Simulated assay, not measured.
Amino acid sequence: MPVINVTLMEGYDEVTRERLAKGITQVAQTVIGAPLEGITVTLQELPPANYMRGGTRKSPGTPPISPSEIIRSYLAAMEARDLETAKQWLADTALLTFPGGADFTSLEAMIEWARARYRSIGKTYERFDETGTDDGAVVICQGTLHGEWLDGSKFEGIRFVDWFLIRDGRIVEQRVWNDLSETPATR
């Protein structure tokens, strides 16, 4: 069973240290197949006075917002139709792909496309999963959709999966899968 020791500069908050330890545990489980309960991760901290790089004392940097929190903030803004806030989370070259191969490079175009499908929509989240890749962080969220069809009737319990790629704190790609087209009101 692996024992992984990590040395950090003193000063990172508890949430950041916990995210780091959990992430390292998940990587070890995935890469070497060790059972979760058999993986030990220890974080040791060096006081700033005991750390120097390039002949200069350093301080810990500010950790970025977690990829899942970026996605939660973006999706909350989209559900509220606060497009200005939602746009702050998108890279300038973001590509949004929705069911049926509908690709968008602007939120306005995506919302216009959705107007022909439903009056309103919301999400109930069951889980968020995130991982690092060579291209950036990937977040997958899944759950169910609820809302109102064009005729005013309500819907709920429609499955969805959203896949996001995040680079430098911004969403560069979103891919959406859902069962909206499998329900009677959209046929």
Score class of each variant (00 low, 15 high):
R17N: 05
A137H: 12
I140D: 01
I121W: 00
L20G: 05
R167W: 10
E182Q: 09
G23R: 03
E79W: 01
A77P: 01
I39Q: 00
F155S: 02
V161M: 08
W163T: 03
D168K: 12
Q29R: 09
S106D: 01
G100H: 02
M52H: 06
A49G: 08
Y51H: 10
I24N: 00
A116P: 00
L43E: 03
G136C: 14
L107V: 14
V138H: 14
Q26E: 15
E45M: 05
L96A: 02
D13M: 11
E37T: 10
A185R: 03
I158R: 00
V139S: 04
G143K: 13
M52W: 13
L145A: 04
I166N: 02
L145F: 03
A102K: 15
C141L: 13
L8Y: 10
I171F: 11
D162M: 11
Q29L: 10
R19K: 12
A109Q: 04
A114P: 00
G11D: 05
E45S: 03
D82W: 15
L150E: 02
Q26S: 10
A49S: 13
A102D: 07
E112Q: 08
L46A: 12
E112S: 13
F155M: 07
V27A: 11
L165Q: 04
N5F: 09
A102W: 00
P64D: 08
D92V: 05
F128P: 06
V176G: 01
Q26K: 02
R117W: 11
D168L: 09
G169D: 05
E79G: 06
A86M: 10
T7I: 13
T25D: 01
G157H: 07
L150Q: 06
F164V: 02
I158W: 01
S153M: 06
R81Q: 12
E182L: 09
L145E: 01
